[in-house]
Every structure is written in structure tokens, then in C-alpha cells.
């Protein structure tokens, strides 16, 4: 693991007028690592992720992908660098069908530059079947699909292409239990493939089950970055709410080790 991290964000700033939405945040992500990003609404975590996905330009700071400095001016730049995002809103065009959404902005074309709908349908059928075998109505506009199916399209779009980094913004917020389990399984699978994942979530249970590390933001600042076995849920809650660890905190795994000794 001596290679450069997959993603390094160094001293990222984002100001809206006088408000510092992201205030000098540095964060990194390695291959095959799942990092949970937590914080209140408005703590700046979505803002930070939008900067990484190219949807928002930072006011300052530097982003490096595998050691190389990059600058994203639009979402396409980030996608070309292998950064895919599953937005909380899913970012689907409701009037288009599943294949059209899956390939939106990256349409497959025939030799003559026409849309190759047949190839897109075929590819969509394969990737969607992998995530949800019951997904059959591919020709319907996505507005008529269930929340779970829509989520599956958004996920498929993020993993179909050559993905190195995956940003998941509240991926399970709109899902039922079985679909949540599917997403959890998928995250483990992708981690095993060496993909780095930022998981933005409010669900402490998910975070502790899936993440290797938690990063907590509070009022635009980064207030804590801990390996998951160092902290308890209460510690993380304290970071989220107060912006600091409990006064008597000591690393959970070390404490346990000490007790065993």
C-alpha cells in the first residue's frame, strides 16, 4: 500500500459569499477502501463530494488522482478520471428509458454516428440483470419505475464504466431491506475488486458494517478521521453533533487490547 492514494483532496475550500461550506478539508482514499463520510445536513459533505465529482468547482485546494494533480471543470472530467457518483437524487431523466439513462452523456453510436439503441439495450439488460434479475421493463420511461429499480439504474450507471472511485450519496435512503442488503453486498464486491468508495450516509448501522474508516465533518471542517475499529457509534455521534470526541475518549481497539493484556 505504498503506492499513491487513489484520491487525495488537499485543503479543499468552497465559499458561497461569506459562508465557508467546505473549510480547508483534506481527505484521502485508497484502493479497495470504503470511507464513510458523516455529518449533519449542511456540514459540507455533499459539497465536498460534488467537488470531487466535478459538479462544483472548488474555491481553493488541490485534487490528486493516483498522485497526479487534476482539475475538474465539469462532471465529464471526473468521469474520465474514473470517478463515478451515485447521487442521492439519482440524477435520472424521467422521460427516458433505462438504457438511455444508463448511457446518458456516453451514448454508444454506430459507425455513422447514429445512436446504437440496440447495443445500449443489450448492455443495459446485462448490467441490470446482474444487480436485479427481475428488471425486465427496460423500455419504460424511468418515471414509471419503482424507487428500487430507479436506484438500480443509478448504480448500474456508476459501475458499468471503468470505475476506480465510487461516490455513493445516501445510496440506501430510499430502499427497502432486501434492496439495502443488495447494495451492501455490492459495496463489498466492489471493494474486493479494488475500487475505492466514499459512502455518504446517515445510517450508523450501514457505516459500521461496511466502512473501513469514518471521516466526520462539522460546519465545513473535518473534525475526525478514524479507523472503524477505533471508535464506537457514540464517539462518532459526538463528532457529528459536537465536532469533537468525548473528553475521556481513547481508541476502542487499543483499550480492548489493554484490557486483554
Amino acid at each position: 500500500m505504498s503506492a499513491a492514494p487513489l484520491v487525495e483532496m488537499i485543503g479543499i475550500e468552497k465559499h458561497f459569499g461569506g459562508i465557508r461550506a467546505v473549510d480547508g478539508v483534506s481527505i484521502d482514499l485508497h484502493r479497495g477502501e470504503v470511507v464513510g463520510l458523516l455529518g449533519h445536513n449542511g456540514a459540507g459533505k455533499s459539497c465536498l463530494m460534488r467537488i470531487l465529482s466535478g459538479a462544483m468547482a472548488p474555491s481553493g485546494g488541490e485534487i490528486r488522482i493516483m498522485g497526479e494533480p487534476v482539475s475538474f471543470t465539469e462532471p465529464n472530467d471526473a468521469r474520465e478520471a474514473g470517478i463515478e457518483t451515485i447521487y442521492q437524487t439519482l440524477a435520472l431523466a424521467d422521460h427516458l428509458d433505462a438504457p438511455a439513462n444508463l448511457f446518458l452523456g456516453r451514448e454508444l453510436k454506430t459507425r455513422f454516428g447514429n445512436l446504437d439503441d440496440r447495443a445500449m439495450l443489450k448492455a443495459a439488460r446485462e448490467v441490470l440483470a446482474r444487480l436485479n434479475p427481475n428488471f425486465k421493463n427496460l423500455g419504460d420511461p424511468v418515471s414509471s419505475l419503482s424507487g428500487g429499480q430507479r436506484q438500480v439504474i443509478a448504480i448500474a450507471r456508476a459501475i458499468y464504466f471503468d470505475t476506480k472511485v465510487l461516490i455513493m450519496d445516501e445510496p440506501t435512503a430510499a430502499l427497502g431491506p432486501s434492496e439495502t442488503a443488495m447494495v451492501a453486498g455490492l459495496i463489498k464486491e466492489l471493494r474486493a475488486e479494488g475500487i475505492g468508495i466514499f459512502l455518504v450516509s446517515h445510517d450508523m448501522h450501514d457505516v459500521f458494517e461496511l466502512c473501513d474508516r469514518v471521516v466526520v465533518m462539522n460546519k465545513g471542517r473535518l473534525v475526525g478521521s478514524h479507523a472503524i475499529d477505533e471508535v464506537t457509534k457514540d464517539d462518532v455521534l459526538s463528532l457529528i453533533v459536537k465536532g469533537e470526541l468525548p473528553a475521556d475518549w481513547s481508541a476502542r481497539n487499543l483499550t480492548q487490547a489493554a484490557q486483554h493484556a
Binding site: 440524477a91 435520472l92 446518458l104
Partner: peptide
């Protein structure tokens, strides 16, 4: 259909 979604999808 959804301007923001289109933008985020690279349109």
C-alpha cells in the same frame, strides 16, 4: 426531462 440530472450525467 431533468436539467440537473442531464448536467451531472455529462450532458
Amino acid at each position: 426531462s431533468n436539467e440537473e440530472a442531464a448536467r451531472l450525467s455529462g450532458v
